[in-house]
Design a protein around this nucleic acid. Structure first.
Lengths: 209, 209
DNA sequence: GTTTGTCTCAAACAACTGTATTAATTATAC
DNA sequence: GTATAATTAATACAGTTGTTTGAGACAAAC
């Protein structure tokens, strides 16, 4: 079969997205793809490299679109910096677009975050995009201290990962039918509010009680 | 040894928090606790029940404190509803407190979310607390549509889980030293902003492009 | 038609998983 | 001291994991 490789990639993408990387065995994948176990190691060498190819066949175009959108928003707002909403939209909207033809890829990325595999992947393939968006957020929120900004990026990462792949504890109305595009729009609104919130007073006495 | 059971619980709590439930084998746990493999099944019966005990020995007091704080904030603000900041604080601060003596427990809860085990656990032991906080948020944000609120709770869940257990892609300054209390205060500020953000216009034409 | 390289097949590998069993040990009560 | 219960130890089980192997099927090239 000529398309064995693609069938493996499709099956892996689907199962990684639904169950996560660790929970998906190679035997699940070959059963879903209808191919032989050896085919995976013939075509990819290892489970880890298979994951790498699943990611990279989508991540590259997504990242290009992200940078293009951010450039456009930056140009439109010039000389002012692009507002947070647009920075976040430039980051998230391309994921929603790719979800149209590869609905599972978004989930795969979420799983990577949730399983703690993202730091490795990021440093390998996403460095440029992350760096660019960090700068954009920095300019959009000049009054926000650096540590607070980085913490909020961390929080955002969690909300993103959860929003894209996790099953909610209590399902919002229309959860199953609502498309990823609208879901990410809701997320942009929510995260923008979070980034815009006043920063914590630096190292005062604890206010918890 | 008299404290075998506690040593198992402590080791399990630590390893579940650091590596997650699925990635932690019973043999990791016994090696860490310095006990025999049979001791786990003697004291707990199964891996799943061990997890249950790890959770419940901390979750019960935490949930009591949560409800007490929320009652207090509600009384203080009466007849107005308690503001979002306080609702979130009542939910998160007790976790920060328990982190003082059981620093890994917070991470365990985060892992449960990330691994998708939380829905089961929640419905079993956290139903009251979740219901109460849902109502509190509803009253604090009366103008927010119900579906939008539930989506934001979902986003909040993700940010919480990630903030408490995941290693950030790029570490904020002072990441290793800053205590959980302050981290959760940052999270409360961020989430409050998110909940306060204006809701998405209901079902308009897509604004993505 | 034979050869060469691509690819698939079934089977097996060693390592690991949660669980179970049986005997030995220890502590407590009488 | 002995009987009774609580607890540990060592070992084995059956299943799953990622990975490897070697024999064969198939196509295209010459």
């Amino acid at each position: 079969m000529i398309d064995t490789k693609d069938r493996i990639l499709d099956a892996a993408e689907r199962l990684f997205g639904e169950q996560g990387y660790a929970a998906t065995s190679l035997r699940h994948i070959i059963a879903d793809a209808g191919v032989n176990l050896a085919a995976i190691h013939y075509h990819f060498g290892s489970k880890e490299e298979l994951l790498g190819e699943v990611i990279m066949r989508n991540a590259a175009p997504v990242n290009e679109t992200r940078l293009a959108m951010l450039d456009r928003f930056d140009a439109e707002a010039s000389p002012a910096p692009a507002p947070v909403e647009q920075v976040l939209e430039a980051f998230l909207a391309p994921m929603a677009e790719v979800a149209a033809c590869h609905p599972q890829f978004v989930k795969v990325m979420g799983r990577m975050h949730a399983e703690g595999l993202m730091p490795t992947i990021i440093r390998r393939h996403f460095h440029t995009v992350v760096e660019r968006f960090h700068q954009a957020l920095r300019r959009a929120l000049p009054e926000l201290p650096e540590d607070e900004l980085m913490w909020r990026v961390h929080f955002m990462t969690g909300a993103m990962a959860h929003a894209t792949c996790a099953k909610p504890v209590f399902e919002p109305p229309g959860y199953a039918t609502e498309d990823m595009r609208r879901r990410l729009e809701r997320l942009v609104a929510f995260l923008s509010g979070g980034f815009r919130a006043p920063a914590l007073a630096p190292e005062q006495a604890e206010v918890t009680q």
